[in-house]
């Protein structure tokens, strides 16, 4: 145990995700040895994050204004909506440079064990958005795990009655750069059932 504020700093850093006691100690001593100007910049950014960042009124992505950069961009196709669980998933899809539509961030996945049901997610906002905008396709890009698949199942059921709306799901299959022999049977089974003609 260190004295006073140093130990407080280590304790606070240790509460961050992925930071254990050793890492917290290392970061704390790095900060103690850092130039005061760098510390001031970090303090300023932390203050701005707390006060300046909000969620987009339309898609729920993190934003500095009422509408996020993607929802403000007139070049993005408003008829295409990609539904993701978290803001970080928006970044993952954007990195592909394949998608030119807009997003809808649910804020998680249906997980009864953690007390997350349909009312805890932004599903009502999605339905209102589809009802009020000219949307032709909804791409469900929830995580390919149990909770993500169950969320996709639920969304399909809620969306299937919208006339003229196509609902699609991200394909699942084998990762690039892998060996077929190491693929698990669930992934390989999905890759087979979702095979495409060449």
């Amino acid at each position: 145990m260190y004295e006073g504020v140093v130990q407080d700093l280590i304790d606070e850093l240790g509460r961050l995700p992925g930071i254990g006691p050793k890492s917290a100690q290392r970061i704390a001593f790095h900060l103690l040895a850092t130039d005061p100007a760098d510390i001031a910049r970090l303090q300023e950014i932390l203050g701005k994050v707390r006060e300046g960042v909000r969620f987009c009124d339309i898609c729920g992505n993190v934003s500095e204004e009422e509408r996020c950069r993607i929802c403000r961009d007139a070049r993005r196709d408003p008829a295409l909506i990609c539904v993701v669980e978290e803001p970080k998933d928006v970044l993952a899809v954007e990195r592909t440079r394949e998608f030119r539509g807009r997003y809808h961030v649910l804020g998680g996945a249906l997980d009864p064990l953690s007390g997350v049901g349909p009312d805890q997610l932004r599903i009502k906002e999605l339905l209102a958005r589809i009802g009020g905008e000219e949307v032709s396709e909804v791409i469900i890009a929830t995580d390919p795990n149990t909770e993500g698949e169950a969320t996709a199942t639920y969304l399909v059921r809620m969306l299937r009655d919208f006339p003229g709306l196509t609902v699609t799901r991200l394909a699942s299959g084998l990762p690039m750069g892998g060996d077929l022999e190491f693929a698990d049977e669930l992934t390989l089974g999905r890759a087979l059932s979702g095979r495409r003609a060449l």
């Binding site: 249906l110 009864p112 064990l113 698949e149 169950a150 199942t153 059921r157 049977e185």
Partner: peptide, 25 residues
């Protein structure tokens, strides 16, 4: 190794998914 892949058919139906969640909890 998988013995039974129960998850695939269960997550394809929201009612079964919620029931299975209650069973495991």
């Amino acid at each position: 190794e998988t013995v039974d892949a129960f998850a695939l058919p269960i997550v394809g139906d929201y009612q079964r998914y919620t029931a299975a969640s209650a069973i495991t909890e």
